[in-house]
Simulated assay, not measured.
Amino acid sequence: MATETTAVTRELIWRRVMDELGFEHARVRRGPEGAELSGLLLVAEQGAPLRAEYSIVCDSAWRTRRVSVTQSWRGEHRALTLEHDGQGHWWKDGQVAQELEGCTDVDLGLTPSTNALPINRLRLAEGARAEIRAAWVRFPELEVVPARQGYTRTGPARYRYEGLESDFNAMLDVDADGVPIDYADLWRRIAEGPAAPVTAKQAFVEALVSPGPSSELGDAAATFGWLVGGWEGTIQDHDADGSVRESPGEWWFHWVLDGRALQDVLIVPSRRAPARPGPGANKRYGTTVRTFDRAAGQWQITWVSPTGGAINRLAGGRDGDRLVLLGEHHGKPIRWSFSDIGPDRFTWLGEVQEADGQWKRQSRFDMRRIP
C-alpha cells in the first residue's frame, strides 16, 4: 500500500447497491503518525431512517486504537466507544471488554470502509491468506461481538473476505490505499476526491470533545456520566429578603480531554427564551470542568463564570441518593447538590452556610432532559 511522509486526506462516497437503501460519506486521513477513518452512514433500517457517525483512529501500523460511534434510529440516540491497546486488550464505554480479548481490528457492520483496516495492517503478499479476530459492531443494536474472519489477497488489488462463522464470502476490489472500491454486490464507490481542510472550529471541537469516558475513570465515570446531553428548565435565585427571581435556562454536558473530564456549558436565560421584563435570575454563561481525583476518591470541579466573575472550586461525590459537592465562596462554605435524580430530570441546589451553621438556599435549578 502507498506510504506518505505528509498527511493525505480523501473523501469518498459509497452506495449500497444490494438494495439501494443506503449511502456512506467517509474521510480517510493517512500520515506518518497513523490513520483515521471517519464517516456518516445514512441507511433505511427496518423501514426507519438510521444515521450513524463514526471515527476510527489507528496507529502507524494500522492497529485500531480508538473507535467512536453515534447512532440515531427510531427516535433514540445511542453511542459506543471502544479503546484498544494494540495488543488485543479492549475497553467498551470505559469498561474492560473481556469478550473482545484477542481481537485485532474493528469491523463496523454497516460500512465497507473498515475492511481497509486489516488489509493495511496485514499487508499480505499476493496469494497469501490470514485469519483474524475482529470486534464486530452490529447495527442497530450497537452490540459488539468477536468474529473470526479471513482475508486472502487474490490479486494486486483484489481480496477475498470470509466470515468464518457465517460462511459468507465476498470479493473486494481496493485502491492503492487498500480502501474498497467495490465490495461484491453490496457496496460500490460512486465518488472520491481530496477533502477540504478541517476548519479551526472543527479542529478545536475534535481536540476537546471526546466520544465517551476514558477507561482510566473506571466505575467513577458513572457518577456524572448520566448527565451527558442537553437539559432545560427553571432557574431560581433566592435573595436575602426572601424574594425569588426566576428565568429559563439550558445546560449542556459532554466528555472532554480524551474522556478524562466532563465539561458543561450553563446558559441563563436560555438562548431560546423570549426577552422578559423584570430582573429574572442571575445571568449565567459559564462552564464547569469535572475531573476525578483517584488518590482522594472524589470528584473535583471548577466553575468559571465570565458573566459573574466567579471561579469556584468544589469537591465531593455520591452521598446516598444525592451528589454533593462542597467548597467556599467569599470565605463562606458552599454546597451544591444534585437530588431528585431520574432518567430525564434532576434538581440542582446551591446553598451557603451561615454563621449559625445552618444552610441557606441561594439557587435552585429544576431541569429536564432535552429529547
Rank of each mutant, 00 (worst) to 15 (best):
R78I: 08
D258W: 00
A355S: 15
A157H: 10
R138L: 14
R313Y: 08
R133N: 11
S210W: 04
W348H: 02
V137A: 05
R188L: 14
D105S: 06
P333T: 07
A7Y: 07
A207Y: 08
A221I: 00
G331K: 11
D237I: 08
P197F: 07
Q71M: 13
A176M: 00
A355Y: 02
R369A: 05
P112K: 01
L262Q: 01
V324D: 06
L323P: 03
E141A: 15
T64H: 07
P197L: 08
A207R: 15
D366W: 00
G193D: 11
P333A: 09
P269Y: 04
E351N: 10
T81D: 06
W136I: 02
L208N: 01
V352P: 01
A207F: 06
R78H: 06
G350A: 13
G342Y: 01
M171H: 09
S210R: 08
S247T: 13
P146S: 12
G278A: 10
V289R: 09
R313W: 08
S214M: 08
W90E: 02
A170W: 01
L262W: 02
M367L: 15
A221Q: 09
L326N: 14
V137K: 02
E20W: 08
E76G: 00
T307C: 07
T199V: 08
P180S: 09
L40P: 00
G22N: 05
G102C: 09
T70Y: 00
E328T: 14
I301A: 04
A26K: 06
L314H: 03
P112R: 03
A196N: 09
R335F: 06
A134G: 13
C103T: 13
R158G: 03
V198L: 14
T234N: 01
D107K: 08
V17M: 01
L227N: 01
P118N: 10
